[in-house]
């Protein structure tokens, strides 16, 4: 991806800003033009709380280009508490500790660097929830 493509997706990458369907109320991530539940146009921004749980996962030892320095790392499908499934890297966790149903929370981390001279790409990852007694960050329409 080039600079403009990363730039266009910065809100969803940094802060899990998706959409809410104003017809059926479905929470949508990543944002798209049409609600996947009711096929109506969907456009109201919605910031997800960042809380969820591991739905499935796999540990990567043979990474794609650009991710070599992070191996071994675990990629998970995370079920957000508002519903959508998101694929993301897990961080601050040893691969052996990861299990299905593990409560996680979103953090904004470095995804990769485009070489020594290129831009640094930041985005969402998930880490084990530090404490579950804390009230989650409010999710809502203020993006």
């Amino acid at each position: 991806m080039g600079i403009p493509a990363y730039w266009r997706t910065r809100a969803q990458r940094y802060a899990l800003v998706g959409e809410v369907c104003h017809k059926c109320g479905a929470k949508i991530f990543p944002p798209r033009d049409v609600c996947p539940e009711c096929s109506r146009p969907a456009s109201d921004p919605f910031t997800f709380s960042g809380r969820g749980e591991v739905y499935s996962f796999s540990t990567i030892y043979q990474p794609p280009e650009g991710f070599e320095e992070f191996v071994p790392y675990t990629v998970a499908i995370v079920k957000l508490e508002e519903g959508p499934l998101v694929t993301a890297q897990l961080t601050d966790v040893d691969p052996a500790e990861v299990h299905i149903g593990m409560p996680v929370e979103m953090v904004t981390r470095k995804l990769r660097e485009e070489g020594e001279e290129g831009q640094i790409i930041y985005g969402y990852k998930f880490r084990p929830l530090l404490r579950n007694t804390l009230t989650p960050r409010p999710s809502g329409q203020a993006a």
Partner: peptide
């Protein structure tokens, strides 16, 4: 810091708590 952390990512997390 972990391999995916820098001053920006760490500032974001501290600032999120401050905002909360």
């Amino acid at each position: 810091p972990g391999l995916d952390e820098d001053t920006a990512t760490m500032a974001i997390e501290a600032a999120r708590s401050a905002l909360q």
